[in-house]
């Protein structure tokens, strides 16, 4: 099975990276891993559940502030806040879903963004507790020796991305996954074959929120300072949409490729300041027009490969019965 070998080799390289890589390489891979986690979560929503959110920064911010409150106010080890940040984000996503799932298409998208903006303004206003517009720092991170801190951050990022990818693959291969893809292709059809559409979508929405929340906490472990305008910035949504559209929406491989391309492009365009966003936008639009299935779509058109097979095939025992 070459697929297993590729994945195992990749895993070994990543696991051993702190032993041989430079600090810069290590930090770059952390960035890759958290963008990948964010992209995987958004891809599940938009690419599989048909829930096009432009407000996932709400959960980045919630995760970031969960980190601040849990680590600074409650004195928890900042790294142990990651699973808790995931839980807090999922908990916050539940009432949001009651509201959002009454809306369709563009209304849904705009409402996700409105919720994120409301949270951003609320965090800006809370001077005493969350530090208002200037935000707060996670001071307890200063208690870790720098090398150790970066190594733990690296493995935490690796664990998060592994959960995001494996969770997505597991979900999509399950009965829920088929239900999701059915909803994406025809919601009335899905209902007609007994798919509980709202429950299925809610399950995915909560999972995506949890991953995004944990990623938010992780991002601010690397940045230390949590400011509301940055943590709840719509840029998080914009970057992630770019990544998924470029890589290939509705595939597991797409976000991986998209994240690589995004980080390489950002590096190449780093001198251009504001212009880089414009270029990202232009590339994304060109991609949607000329290759709507993204780079991975172009690859699978030419070669029939899948790094993470999630599709179901009729079992061979039925095919043999036909020929005999």
């Amino acid at each position: 099975m070459p697929r297993i070998l590729i994945l195992a080799g990749l895993g070994l390289v990543l696991l051993s990276l702190p032993l041989w890589g430079s600090g810069y390489q290590q930090r770059s891979v952390v960035e890759f891993l958290y963008f990948l986690s964010l992209a995987m979560a958004w891809n599940l929503l938009a690419g599989y559940a048909g829930l096009v959110s432009i407000g996932q920064q709400a959960f980045v911010g919630i995760g970031a502030y969960a980190l601040v409150v849990l680590a600074e106010d409650l004195g928890l080890n900042p790294f142990l806040t990651l699973p808790l940040a995931a839980a807090v984000a999922a908990l916050a996503a539940l009432p949001a879903s009651w509201l959002l799932f009454r809306l369709q298409g563009a209304y849904f998208a705009v409402a996700t963004w409105v919720i994120a903006e409301v949270l951003r303004l609320a965090a800006n206003a809370s001077i005493d507790w969350l530090g208002g517009g200037r935000g707060r720092a996670v001071r307890s991170l200063g208690g870790f020796e720098r090398g150790l801190r970066e190594d733990i951050t690296f493995y935490a990022a690796l664990a998060l991305a592994a959960v995001a990818v494996a969770g997505a693959v597991w979900l999509l291969r399950s009965c829920t996954g088929l239900g999701l893809m059915a909803i994406r292709d025809s919601e009335p059809g899905a209902q007609a074959v007994g798919v509980e559409t709202t429950r299925t979508k809610r399950r995915v929405y909560l999972f995506a929120a949890a991953i995004t929340g944990a990623a938010g906490a992780l991002i601010y472990i690397t940045q230390i300072n949590v400011r509301p305008d940055a943590a709840f910035s719509v840029n998080w949504a914009a970057y992630v949409i770019f990544i998924v559209v470029i890589g290939g929406i509705g595939t597991i491989e797409g976000p991986i490729i998209g994240t690589l391309i995004f980080l390489a492009l950002r590096e190449a365009l780093s001198g251009l300041e504001g212009w880089s966003m414009l270029i990202f936008g232009a590339i994304a639009i060109a991609m949607m027009l000329f290759a709507p299935r993204g780079i991975w779509g172009l690859v699978t058109e030419r070669w029939n490969i899948a790094l993470f097979p999630i599709r179901r095939q009729m079992p061979a025992r039925f095919i043999e019965k036909e020929t005999t």
């Binding site: 088929l178 239900g179 893809m181 059915a182 994406r184 292709d185 025809s186 009335p188 059809g189 899905a190 007609a192 074959v193 007994g194 798919v195 509705g250 599709r311 179901r312 095939q313 009729m314």
Partner: peptide, 15 residues
């Protein structure tokens, strides 16, 4: 209302 991105098998298995 076919699930057009899925195969005939996957459509029926979903049901």
């Amino acid at each position: 209302q076919p699930f057009s991105g899925l195969t005939v098998w996957e459509n029926t298995l979903t049901a």
